[in-house]
Design a binder for these strands. Sequence first.
DNA 1: CAGACGTGGTC
DNA 2: TGACCAAGTCT
Length: 362
Amino acid sequence: MRDGNLKQVGPAEIASDLLVWYDVHARAMPWRVPPADKLSGVRPDPYRVWLSEVMLQQTTVAAVKDYFHRFTTRWPTVADLAAAEDGDVMGEWAGLGYYARARNLLKCARVVVADHGGVFPDTLAGLLKLPGVGPYTAAAIASIAYDLPEVVVDGNVERVMARLHNLHDPLPGSKPQLTELAAGLTPAQRPGDYAQAVMDLGATICTPRNPACGICPLRSPCVARVQGTALELPKKTPKKPKPTRLGIAYVGRRADGAYLLERRPDKGLLGGMLGWPGGPWSEGGAAEAPPIAADWRLLGAEARHTFTHFHLILQVRIADLPQGANPEVGQFIEPETFRPSDLPTVMRKAFDLARGGFDNTP
DNA sequence: CAGACGTGGTC
DNA sequence: TGACCAAGTCT
């Protein structure tokens, strides 16, 4: 049979082909136990598997690596994390995005310590009850950490399944079908390696833009490859356009170098993170009053930032505040305590502009 | 169930 | 430059 033709291959053989490929091409990750080490009985640490999986939700491996290293260095066990201060965890997560993940991370660590003796549940149902652990993450922990044959379905698996079976129904409506197809391939042997193999395949071979079909271990049974439809799969329902909102960031600096910051409420955008006072952002325009009376200067440049569902143009206003200033909003953070890296990215952008403003007007 | 929820990289 | 994309979850 020529390589360009479709070949009937059973589910067991597909899984087996994928595992053979994975044994050679598995990417090395700080949270992963390589296939060869598993043969000597080494098991992944459920804490590290959980932490990495939460960080990897909608986030690239490249972005996660440094955060994973900092978290596991500072909090080596789930008990260490459970005992951490909220603000320390939020600050360490700053820049990674989707901050509900960090809030749920801490909640989850405390539940595992308080209700499970510091040991992660080893069933899908038990894992699903944990804060911030949904169908994907529960199945990933169950299969990767405990080698249970649960069905792991993430964006990679959806893409691989849609192409393998040439399924043109659009996401997210087709998710149940894709899950069904994924379930049909999940093997009883080495389900954890299999799950990681599909995700590695999706990340390195069966990529969204330039799939390397020629070297894909599943090229023989892949219907989309033969039909020439791989590039258009999986289909997705079109997204709505993003509106643009306007806002103000008031960056106030006291004579001793302390900055006036506020802790944002747990609910909503950037919940639980530090930020500059400035009120809500809206399409109508920004008119929020300053947190304290002072000589606020408007900077010439604005911070631009795009969130998941809107663009933001942020005016930056700066002021030198007297040592005895007593603002209604927020709290001063001493220069020894303040780490710009504790700020979410949009707030750090405003800070970078403000710093230039202060430098120009000593 | 559709919308909220971040960010950095890529083309 | 801007739209799309990446190991989703919660409401």
